[in-house]
Write a protein that binds this DNA or RNA. Structure first.
Lengths: 255, 255
DNA sequence: CGCCCGCTTGAATCAATTCAACGCTAGTGG
DNA sequence: CCACTAGCGTTGAATTGATTCAAGCGGGCG
């Protein structure tokens, strides 16, 4: 299952086999080490903990657990969600390779949400204390870290706009468009991809019911916007979908 | 209108008169300098720019403007809102004294939203480049800055929960409870305060219409939850309101 | 005074939900 | 190998919470 964890130093070769090395990681242009030079990456490697495999439906962390580390996704997908006193869940995001998990926990020293793997995944554990020490010596890293946090803030503001102002159709168009762009940024097809999350998860994230998601998919399919087979989606009119997401185009609920 | 700006050093007394000094600011226990010692506050003061007065309805910054500075609110209230391609606005937050504005702009080097004063207000301009230099030398400041950004992330996640899962009544209860707690943290009454924003702004923020807000206020008033006179609100049953906000108590839409 | 703006209230409407039934597929176990 | 079940997804019909439309109030200001 999981890699054995040597707490003491080992010869270089073994360490790289067991520990994450950012230089070799296919995500290093998207992830935390973005823009660092070779020497700086070595220093970051020293801080980064072991890789950790998380099976589908397993939790990476849970609300109220003490916060020690951030996690960078090497591969796989996650969802994060909040639970309130009444037991309502709200998915706050879907994360994919190269993205960072756990930033919401820095303030309270406890996690504020749960992170669950949507498929078998692997993360790099990044002990936050070590990272903080490194910030003083690698300003490039600090600046990039601030960018990442700031990006997360703007992402959430965009979701607020979505949930506060948009109707079902537009929400879903935004959702698909956003996935498309993120896969494209990772070198995958912008027009054909797998939904890693259930219809229920999508609905929860978008503030809609599972039935509404199902109906939207059917409607978009009927209108020739996309093809769906189970969770495999192919966007047939990406430009139109983008226009719908932007709010400049509407697709009437059938002629 | 605005204070003249001496770029060269001046005798201590004049500097404190003209420039913001965190040590004397009533907000310093809530704001950026929280937890700094006297010497560190002096260094922060060196970085912080001039105070700036913003009249009611004036903009502090605007979407797509280049990002140079964060702003700490000395007194007054602001709203921040996003505008999408279709022209829909979404208010992403209401900010009060001691809170920091502009963090969403760090990533793209441009502002991602507009910030408008809800009443005559005053902010400290904090040039971000200077702040970044200081981070390397004042780790306490850096840690607190990360806390602030992280808090903003969790705040927005809470709004996502609100917009995605809650009904009108609960949203409004959350809104009032949240204002109450923030005023209490500033030494003001937790049960009686002025709404600085219009009903329309509240509705926009909560994903509801102005009519819904008006109806909710009337209903809460009729049910003895609160008193309202124009924008002056008095919470008569704060505990019940909190329970409604938490989702553990419902207040039927009239008997 | 008269107008405008912010707000309130009522009645009609509607988008999305809820309720309900059913289909498909994968996995399980006899 | 097939029957059986559980989980996920689809679809239709009825319901509803909030919106939209419409009218009117009241205070502040030119």
């Amino acid at each position: 299952m999981s890699v054995s964890s040597p707490l003491t130093a080992l010869p270089q070769l073994n360490i790289t086999a067991l520990k994450a090395s950012c230089a070799n990681c296919s995500m290093h242009q998207l992830c935390l080490p973005m823009g660092l030079d070779a020497a700086e990456i070595v220093r970051l490697d020293e801080v980064i903990g072991l890789r950790r495999r998380i099976a589908r439906d397993e939790r990476l962390y849970q609300m109220d657990q003490p916060f020690r580390s951030l996690y960078a996704i090497r591969f796989g997908h996650f969802k994060t969600y909040q639970v309130n006193a009444a037991g309502d869940e709200q998915i706050t995001g879907f994360q994919m390779a190269g993205e960072l998990l756990g930033m919401d926990a820095i303030s309270g020293e406890r996690h504020h949400c749960d992170a669950v793997a949507l498929e078998d995944s692997e993360v790099c554990e990044i002990p936050f204390e070590g990272l903080e020490h490194l910030f003083a010596h690698v300003p490039t890293l600090l600046r990039h870290f601030h960018r990442i946090m700031s990006t997360e803030i703007t992402r959430e503001q965009n979701v607020m706009l979505l949930l506060g102002n948009m109707q079902a159709e537009q929400r879903f168009a935004v959702f698909l468009t956003n996935l498309s762009a993120r896969y494209a940024a990772r070198g995958y097809s912008a027009s054909a991809f797998q939904l890693r999350m259930s219809r229920e998860d999508i609905g929860n994230y978008l503030g809609l019911t599972i039935e509404s998601i199902s109906r939207l998919l059917s409607r978009f399919k009927k209108q020739g916007l996309l093809k769906v087979d189970k969770r495999e989606v192919t966007l047939l009119q990406p430009a139109l979908l983008k226009a719908m997401a932007a709010g400049t185009e509407r697709c009437s609920p059938m002629a």
